[in-house]
Amino acid sequence: MARVVVDVMLKPEILDPQGQAVQRALPRLGFDGISDVRQGKRFELEVDGPVDEAALARIHDLAESFLANTVIEDFTIRVEEVAEAVK
């Protein structure tokens, strides 16, 4: 079994008011030197069966049509091996 991670981020040209609010809170908390924060979403998909090209193509479709709104968001897909459960 494998895990596929889809990261969805607002496109660079889209204003991210939530990220800005986080960034503005940082100096108040004593964290200096962080000039920009952008907030996104991370989806972890547990995939049954092999993560082959066909499976990745399906995940690409699902990310493009559902997980991300490509009018405002970009997404990246990567495969993450799941560590064997400790017995």
Binding site: I14, L15, P17, Q18, A21, N69, V71, I72
Partner: peptide, 17 residues
Amino acid sequence: LTEAHLLPGTMLRNNHL
């Protein structure tokens, strides 16, 4: 309607949050 692409564009959080 924008999510369904019947209308163009989309809505973001209000700029003042």
